[in-house]
Design a protein around this nucleic acid. Structure first.
Lengths: 210, 210
DNA sequence: AAAACAACTACACAATAGGGTAGTTTTATA
DNA sequence: TATAAAACTACCCTATTGTGTAGTTGTTTT
């Protein structure tokens, strides 16, 4: 039996979701809460598989609620409940750890389908939200890492430096003279506007060069 | 008129997609290619809005193809063509810059819907793939930065080190002795199992301590 | 009250790094 | 075939770092 918990301050919606869920053979509603605070107190004992969480709640909002639930129960699947497809809030919820969402006016069968989907490891969401997510994490993968800044050799040497090697050790690895290593590192420092290994590594990682 | 390009080595599929697209009023097929190499040579002149790209291609594969197309035309929407929902390949394609995918055996109307969806800024994908994406980028947000590893003072000193300061400069900033700075850094190195500033910074950033 | 930890200071010493200058040799590109 | 860029070597010199050892002081936990 798949255990579902509900956090929703509108009593009518809360109750009808509970009824919907308990009328199935597959799911069972194991907790109804009208706010995050009450839910967080007992959630570790209830251990639901799925949580339906309203985004807008009195007191702690749903986004913050997701974060805190995820700390206590990292493997729970949380679906956000929203009135409209308010893009930004949903996006924030996904960042916080939600796996998808349900528009409240969705037909009951579709709601159960989405819960099922979430339980099976899916992420029910519209194509538009999905695009926001993919775009966002493609951005993450470094926007214009400026591969042209450092030459291949400089890049190579920087990579060795990050491993904690000394100039001499790098020289041995690359079969060049330690003076050459020193020379390249000097140029790297100039290009990155830094003056030490620590700063160079920090800058390189920040710029996504590594 | 929305311009669509196709990269697909199976001639039958390639041709039927072209026919499908050209039989609509909304879309027009402006290019058919059986491999990435041919497509990349002319893509900047064609400038399609949407590209349908097979994942498995002779020569350069679709994933690499996506990367290169995105360099030339950053705003193009690319849908991957796949036989099955081969999770990992699709995921790699999304990382590379694709916005969604089409399973080849999908009904023609659904294919056109997906193209439409992509053009309107959506990301057509199954709920399972969507979950992989959201999970992945939640992971990115640092899992358990282990704030307990370094003491507050050690953390502070590491932060100064990243700015490129010398032991002496850090000592002045924190109003402590340079020997104390040296002492703290020794302990940081032991905790992170490193032996240089460069390695410490790299490790700290990797672990999300910074 | 003892133990554990954080923060601090101190001294010594060899190894390493950072910066300057000056040049050669490939390799790619106009 | 110039010319530029990358890659390389070398030497000098001082500042800084990495490591060890040895201790004090104050706070928190048991």
């Amino acid at each position: 039996m798949i255990k579902v918990a509900i956090v929703e301050d509108n009593e009518i919606i809360n109750h009808s979701l509970k009824t919907l869920i308990n009328n199935t053979e597959e799911f069972s509603c194991v907790g109804n809460y009208s706010n995050c605070e009450d839910m967080l107190e007992v959630i570790e004992e209830i251990m639901p598989h799925i949580m339906l969480m309203d985004i807008k709640l009195p007191g702690m909002n749903g986004i913050e609620g997701v974060k805190q639930v995820k700390v206590k129960l990292p493997s729970i699947s949380i679906l956000m409940l929203t009135v409209h497809e308010e893009n930004d809030l949903i996006f924030d919820a996904l960042c916080a750890g939600a796996c998808g969402y349900l528009v409240k006016k969705t037909h009951p069968e579709k709601i159960l389908e989405a819960i099922e989907e979430a339980y099976e490891g899916g992420a029910p969401m519209s194509s538009h939200i999905a695009r926001k997510v993919t775009t966002f994490f493609q951005m993450d993968k470094k926007l214009s890492p400026d591969k042209t800044l450092l030459t291949p050799r400089e890049h190579e040497i920087l990579s060795e430096l990050i491993k904690g090697k000394t100039y001499y050790a790098i020289a041995m690895t690359l079969n060049i003279s330690p003076d050459t290593v020193r020379f390249h590192i000097k140029k790297i420092y100039k290009k990155l506007h830094v003056h030490s290994q620590a700063e160079a590594v920090a800058e390189a990682i920040k710029k996504g060069i590594i």
